[in-house]
Design a protein around this nucleic acid. Structure first.
Lengths: 215, 215
DNA sequence: ACCTGAACACCGTTCAAGT
DNA sequence: ACCTGAACACCGTTCAAGT
């Protein structure tokens, strides 16, 4: 007797909801339609249940966003720390980190306030980076500030990804902003994507600067 | 005849709402109770009008947040660019910038997507920084990436300000994260506030790194 | 244990009606 | 021109009732 037949016969169906199924459906909805249209009602509909059913498995929408975050963290590549030197590894890891959250910007405020102990994968990532920085010879007291600084830059840069391409359009104020207008024109001439260019430019400077602080 | 008497007499009162009054009331509400409880209904109540009345003056809540942003930008100190050398000026300006938006975190996603031409004060600030960087001798094509990188770090750091103090509590995973656990302990021993410490640490590295790129 | 349906307490926003 | 009051189209979440 199939599950559908059993349901038709009136037998109470077995639970169809669990963390895995909910999270995967949520991630699919988010990837397809973005976070603006991601609501508990739509998620419920896509799972074929009523919205209230979700609350037998998840405490709040914020909780669910944390589940998604934990899933998304798996996409960040930390394997470079085993292969490349510290500078190259930091550059590649940070780039991977930024690109992942550029696709999940609304998760950033959620993570920023989340104790790392609630996210095993985040904790594992921090451990890997901390180990690499210690091996490099960085002072113990500077490891956390270094990680936090990198993460702040990464999150800020991920958000910048959402900026419109003409964000620096100064057409109507050219006379009042001569230096900035010229700088915008010069950047446009030499590079395709301002956000990517600025990220790599800043990341290189930041990593170099952070690794230069030896005690 | 006072305005109140006129109203009592049934004469149509003159408009009580305008951008200035709305924005100032909004800023006061936000400063007192935070952004979570900042709603159009509450703002209307504090102004003594019905919620729908606001929409005769503002197109949307997002618009209103942009008005607040423009007001808040006035708090950022750019005067240092006239007094100190470029490095010191960038450090002080960035610190001022971060501290202002640490008190207005929910504005960050609004600004990040806002064309600068919609915010005169932001444009003015960019012009001042661009001028200083040009005077310093930075290549034209690197001025915008430098500003964007600094801003990304500033916004990310402002958000980090909202993190709980025990965000790095690894009590339950000490054995799995030896390096990170030790780094957290070391940082705690030497510094009071992780967020402030990390910001200054990263800012110093970033500014040094950005100014070192000479062509 | 897990689901449904109705309800609650909100949101931001629109709009006809008044002055 | 500007305001009110009612209404709309949503939210996230709770809870009694069912199986």
């Amino acid at each position: 007797m199939s599950e559908t037949e059993a349901r038709r016969a009136g037998r109470p169906r077995k639970a169809v909801l669990n963390r895995e199924r909910i999270t995967e459906h949520a991630l699919e909805l988010v990837s397809d339609d973005g976070y603006e249209s991601f609501t508990m009602q739509r998620l419920a509909k896509s799972l074929g249940v009523s919205p209230s059913a979700l609350y037998n498995h998840v405490d709040s929408k914020n909780d669910l966003l944390q589940w998604i975050q934990e899933l998304v963290m798996a996409d960040i590549d930390t394997s470079v720390f085993d292969e490349a030197d510290i500078k190259e590894a930091l550059l590649q890891w940070a780039t991977s980190y930024r690109n992942v959250f550029a696709r999940h910007i609304p998760l950033i405020p959620v993570i920023a306030v989340l104790p790392v102990s609630d996210s095993p994968r985040t904790l594992g990532m921090y451990e890997r980076v901390a180990e690499a920085l210690s091996d490099y010879g960085m002072a113990e007291s500077e490891v956390v500030p270094t990680i936090v600084a990198l993460e702040s830059f990464i999150f800020g840069s991920a958000m910048d990804t959402a900026a419109p391409h003409d964000i620096f359009d100064t057409r109507n104020h050219q006379d009042l902003t001569p230096h900035f207008t010229q700088a915008v024109a010069a950047q446009r001439r030499s590079k395709l994507n301002t956000s990517d260019d600025s990220f790599q430019h800043g990341l290189s400077a930041l990593v170099t600067g952070l690794l230069a602080i030896r005690s």
